[in-house]
Simulated scan of single mutants.
Amino acid sequence: MKILNICAYTWAIGGPARIIYDHTTVVLKLGHQVDILSPASPEDKIYPAPDGARVIVCKRTTPISRFFPEFSLELWDFLKKHIHEYDVVHCHGIWHFGSVAPFLFKNNTPKAVTIHGLLDHWALHHGYWKKKIFSVLFQKRFLKKANLIQINNHDELNDLRQYLGFQHPNVAIIPNGMQLDELATLPPKGTFRQKFGLPTDKKIVLFMGRLNIKKGLDLLLPAFQKYAQQYDDTLLVLAGPDDGYQALTERFISDHHLAHKMIMVGMLTGELKKAALADADIFALTSYSEGFSIAALEAMTAGVPALVSNRIGFDGTVAQYHAAHEVPLTVEGVLEGLVQMLQNPSYCDTLKKNAKKMVWELYDIEIVAGNLAKEFAKIQS
Rank of each mutant, 00 (worst) to 15 (best):
V304K: 08
V304R: 02
V304T: 13
P305Q: 08
A306N: 14
A306R: 08
V308Q: 01
S309C: 12
S309W: 04
N310R: 10
N310A: 08
R311N: 12
R311S: 12
F314P: 03
F314R: 00
D315R: 00
D315T: 02
D315M: 02
D315K: 02
D315S: 11
G316F: 01
T317N: 13
T317K: 14
T317D: 09
T317F: 06
T317Y: 04
V318L: 14
A319W: 02
A319Q: 08
A319L: 12
Q320E: 13
Q320F: 08
Q320A: 06
Y321M: 07
H322W: 11
A323M: 10
A323H: 03
A324H: 06
A324W: 03
A324S: 10
A324C: 12
H325F: 09
H325D: 00
E326R: 04
V327K: 04
V327H: 05
V327D: 02
P328T: 08
P328C: 08
L329K: 09
L329D: 01
T330E: 05
T330G: 01
T330F: 04
T330K: 04
V331E: 15
V331I: 15
E332H: 13
E332P: 07
E332V: 09
G333A: 09
G333L: 10
G333D: 01
V334L: 05
V334I: 13
V334G: 00
L335M: 13
L335P: 04
E336S: 15
G337L: 04
G337W: 01
V339S: 05
V339F: 04
Q340A: 14
Q340V: 11
Q340I: 12
M341G: 03
M341W: 05
L342Y: 07
L342P: 09
L342I: 12
L342A: 08
Q343L: 14
Q343Y: 11
N344Y: 07
P345M: 08
P345I: 06
P345E: 05
S346Y: 14
S346F: 13
Y347I: 10
Y347C: 02
Y347P: 04
C348E: 03
D349V: 14
T350N: 15
L351F: 00
K352L: 07
K352N: 05
N354M: 07
N354V: 11
A355Y: 02
A355V: 06
A355F: 08
K356H: 15
K356Y: 12
K356V: 07
K356N: 14
K357L: 13
M358D: 02
M358W: 00
V359T: 04
V359C: 08
V359E: 02
V359D: 06
W360V: 11
W360E: 14
W360P: 00
E361V: 03
E361D: 13
L362Q: 10
L362S: 02
L362N: 05
Y363F: 15
Y363L: 06
Y363T: 05
D364V: 11
D364C: 07
D364R: 09
D364S: 12
E366I: 09
E366M: 10
E366P: 00
I367W: 09
I367A: 12
I367S: 13
V368R: 04
A369C: 10
A369V: 10
